[in-house]
Design a protein around this nucleic acid. Structure first.
Lengths: 142, 142
DNA sequence: GGATAAACTACAGTTGCTGTAGATTGAAGG
DNA sequence: CCTTCAATCTACAGCAACTGTAGTTTATCC
């Protein structure tokens, strides 16, 4: 029987995060000692590791929920897991694209700046005037 | 005198977001009509455009606050604005790097999946077992 | 003067945690 | 058996940067 701190150490997950995963139903409710402390089995550790690894690959908690459901029902087709992964891949590719456009713009911005006074600062000028941008970069966020 | 909806339309910013920027002190407190509605000048529109453009380039609200301060004091050196932009550039480059590692891993994952049953699903297998990963991808988040 | 769009406040919800306070519990040492 | 101290517990607030909702009031047009 593993204490929550052991799961924490073995997976690099904060204790509160594990409790949070239980709260939102990603982790099963753990058994308790007579005093009320959570105790876990190895399979809980595996599940947590699955969650963390998926997070590291950028999957949302909702996607992970789906993946765990699939993983729990081994007779189903793999197609759905595959499509979740592909969706994630597309998202990652999208984000890379966006960030590369940003990078280009930022590079140009700092390259053109010549350390003058703020009045002629190229960085601030570009920020002031979107029309100076070469690329479109119209979405905010992830 | 511009109504909040005009600023909203002209900058593509939700009305609530404009109010939010006022609340956190990024936008100056707007003047009000006798009935309590906000009214703006062109300079407020410019400031909002600056904020939105900076957001599109990925700057945090805190960074934007600094940039606006600099922009408001045109006699200072440009060096600080430059360093904020360079910091942002480094962050973007970092994120691209991370995402490219993820992309690689995801690609491998879906490429190896052969549409079998969940029991042998490569996607789920990789998620279960971190040791199958070729690259390290140890940080979560932005 | 009535209709209607647009504005107002106030607050809850989003994602995915993280941090804090104050109270208990459990394991080890004396 | 008793103390001690880390580990755990609950409950809730806070982060970033908004977004959405409810219920009300204002401005404008005909």
């Amino acid at each position: 029987m593993l204490a929550i701190g052991t799961l924490s150490r073995r997976t690099g997950t904060k204790v509160q995060t594990i409790r949070y995963y239980e709260e939102i139903g990603l982790m099963n409710e753990a058994g308790r000692t007579s005093g009320g402390q959570r105790r876990y089995f190895e399979k809980d550790l595996d599940r947590l590791a699955f969650i963390r690894h998926s997070r590291q690959l950028g999957f949302s908690l909702d996607s992970i929920r789906e993946l765990l459901d699939l993983s729990d029902n081994p007779s189903q087709s793999c197609a759905e897991a595959d499509s979740i992964a592909r969706r994630q891949l597309r998202q990652v590719e999208q984000r890379i694209k966006r960030l590369q456009a940003l990078k280009k713009e930022l590079k140009r911005m700092v390259a053109e700046c010549e350390g003058d006074s703020v009045a002629e600062c190229k960085v601030l000028e570009v920020l002031r005037d979107h029309s100076e941008c070469l690329t479109e970069h119209d979405e905010i966020g992830a």
